[in-house]
Amino acid sequence: MDRRLLTTLYAWLLVLPAMVLLVAFTHYPTVATFWASFFSTARGRRPANFLGLDHYRRMITDDPVFLQVVWNNFLYALVTIPLSIGIALLMALWVNERLAGRGFLRMAYFTPTVLPMVAAANIWLFFYTPGFGLLNQIIALFGGPEVNFLGSPETALWSVMAVSVWKEAGFFMIFYLAALQSIPPSLKEAAKLEGASDFHFVRRIVLPLLMPTTLFVLVNAVIGAFRVVDHIVAMTGGGPSNASSLLLFYIYETGFKFWDTSYAAALTVVLLAVLITVSVLQVTVLDKRIHYR
């Protein structure tokens, strides 16, 4: 047999298992979701019929909840992503220094990440509880009024964001820490010899060298921000009146509570489009400005 043909065949055989899994569990569901979004949901007593773009029109014109969760989600991303990345970076710079109890600090910062989201949410549920919750007890110590963190529309989303920042920051810190440790100490010494301050060194040398990590973390954070659902379920159920509902939670409700699977499919297509756009933008725009070692 032709040798090249054999080699080609061999190569295809090698990628086959991965291909099968990808197609079965990623590509096919994606295409099926897209396709389903053009039909009405089939019920046992009424079949699906073709709607075209009706679902998408409905999102814009007839679904105030959708518009609200999209707005909530953008606000959520806009606040939690820079905050958690910023805190992660500060924590990483801090625990990368030679200081007493460094190991303990690193562990302490990382612990929230190890906790399952639902467990974390339960801890915070206790912090936020009106009356006997930790935060309200602290507020009461200073004579402040009781705050119903999760129960009022003004604070619910922010309270949920705080949990997410608390949890994500430790996770991102680990990546920054790993990246920081791959920067040779002699760079800092060289900068010091040249008279650069610590701040100057961080700004001009460390941050640029951390950019690949930042991009990675950013992509993860954005994807994370749009697929948060566990702590919403555990803490607020999206309430009050959707004040803390996010896109994926709404998809979950639509798909698994309302059983409107095809509208959920349409919403999923929107979510996918958002994620793909953001990722492509990040990778193409930021990539040019990043130095990879």
Binding site: P184, S186, L187, E189, A190, I205, P208, L209, M211, H291, R293
Partner: peptide, 9 residues
Amino acid sequence: FQNYALFPH
């Protein structure tokens, strides 16, 4: 420096 300590970026 031994490893030159050049700033890679």
